[in-house]
Design a protein around this nucleic acid. Sequence first.
DNA 1: CTGAAAGCGCTAACAG
DNA 2: CTGTTAGCGCTTTCAG
Lengths: 343, 343
Amino acid sequence: MTRRTRRTSGRVTLDDVARRVGVSKITISRALREPWRVSEGLRQRIHAVIDELGYIPNRQAGALASARSRSIALLVPSLSNAVFSEVIRGVDEGFAGSGYQVLLGHTSYSREEEAHLIDTYLSFGVDGFIISGSQHTDSARQRLSRCGLPICEIMELPESPLDMAVGLDHEAAGHALTGALLELGYRRLGFIGARMDYRARRRLEGWQRALTEAGLSTAACLTTESPSDYRLGGQLLGELLEQYPALEMVCCVNDDLAAGALFECQRRGIRVPDQLGLTGYNGLDITEATTPTLSTVITPRRRIGVAAASRMLSRLEGDQGTEVLQDLGFEIALRESTRPAGG
Amino acid sequence: MTRRTRRTSGRVTLDDVARRVGVSKITISRALREPWRVSEGLRQRIHAVIDELGYIPNRQAGALASARSRSIALLVPSLSNAVFSEVIRGVDEGFAGSGYQVLLGHTSYSREEEAHLIDTYLSFGVDGFIISGSQHTDSARQRLSRCGLPICEIMELPESPLDMAVGLDHEAAGHALTGALLELGYRRLGFIGARMDYRARRRLEGWQRALTEAGLSTAACLTTESPSDYRLGGQLLGELLEQYPALEMVCCVNDDLAAGALFECQRRGIRVPDQLGLTGYNGLDITEATTPTLSTVITPRRRIGVAAASRMLSRLEGDQGTEVLQDLGFEIALRESTRPAGG
DNA sequence: CTGAAAGCGCTAACAG
DNA sequence: CTGTTAGCGCTTTCAG
């Protein structure tokens, strides 16, 4: 009794190429993956046939057979936040030419969504994870630590890293920025924040610590869990100034809010920095473009991506590596939106 | 003679679950994919065991066996351009709950990179492509049309679409915006553009056609192939004004350039719109945030994504559909950066 | 340097 | 409602 043969995708397979060349399929496979193990002439014939037939390897079959997919998952909170587009670029750069494919996922700042994406990418058989942040659901932590894959947490420096981590100390950055502002002579400082995720909260904590150490008030602080955008920056600034009209400086938890706050100042005719100072955080392009330019903390977003990729690659190639946390630091950039030193 | 058994990934498989429950693995598979075909009680036991064992299906194996990966590729030029983050969001929304996974790729505005990504995603076995734009390399066009997968080109309305398309007419949009400016009384118009891809060129053509129809000069036009950013907007504006100091309006090919141009005006003390009008294109958040707000053309980016996803889904579910091109239009938004009507 | 056989983990097809 | 068999397209292992 003849069963009907299973309908196939109709695509060209390794076997098609092999038959055409007149060798066995393993030889084609080797010509692709270990070319030095196949004789020169044969290799050329094989490549000619591959081009002729338009053969495209089936990675799923390859991954299934070899238990390695040559892909890694990169999980970021948001694709619309320019901060992460530079991280992504860095990761891409870091993997360029390695043969690994980066699969991008965005969690919309939700741990549950993150947990779900982790399962999804595990079922895709990724060989490793690069994940923004250190705040995961319990079940995600379990899944990640049990799967045995290399993991790199990025952006911050976790207290208990799952595996590797590359980032910077946001509390220290918030503290350093605030310290620099105090040195410029500012005394009445406010803070506005949106989307107060872990890193944002750490910046705020740094701001609070610096002020407390200087014996100054941390009361003028207004935060919300809403997503950050320009208009919200203006709105929060307005609300803060209503309560604290005498502020001489408003620190914004990120550059978007700072730019929005600046636009609002322009709308209200508040001169920056003469009447009010403003700072952002991250060092996005816009901070160098506005009039006045915005003082900010420059975070090494692209370098974080590159470093994460390169550490991931070493691990995938067998290195165990020693250091767990990698601190890439930050840079305080004082520009036109804060009064000049000695001013 | 016993061959050594192949080392496996160590992960829990369908078989592990099946043995534990005491049924055959196909039943587990069905409980997951066609739950209604498995008896209530058994289904519950199965799910309990799945949770207990932490089973995660292997999609590669599933895809290999079924010749469907339940994933689709979304190719955009850039992840740092806010235009595309909204398209992506739309596509995600459109596929939410469908069981399809969106695999995101970015081409860096390079056709060669696009062609390469197409091969990559074909080797991942995606079930369809959503691709920005209609400008592909010959080999990419061939690959796409031969693979037999549903394809949706987005953002523009291609002259010879590969399959489906969802977008808008950028030439018409450029023409309409310019027409509206002429109605406001502007007569000496300039244009600045960066990253002059197909869509940008179409906008410029619309601008030129409108001016030509009105018998006005299109000479004050300055474009570059460099990537677009805020600072470039300022720089191009400066160069254009040097050559054409009497301009009363500068149309920018996108919102980034327009915002940058506005910041440059503020730097130079040029009052907008009193001394110079400014327009952008796309309707990004920043256009509503700056002081003054920026006149622009609002493009339905998110809706394009949603529509592309939903048409892709219909095709994946067997509908053939009739219409090829889907025009989602645009909206002219005249705001504070252009003089008021009758002004 | 090349090949044969086995099997990765799953699902389609055909029973029962 | 549940099971058996075959095989997706590739790579591993072992032989020559």
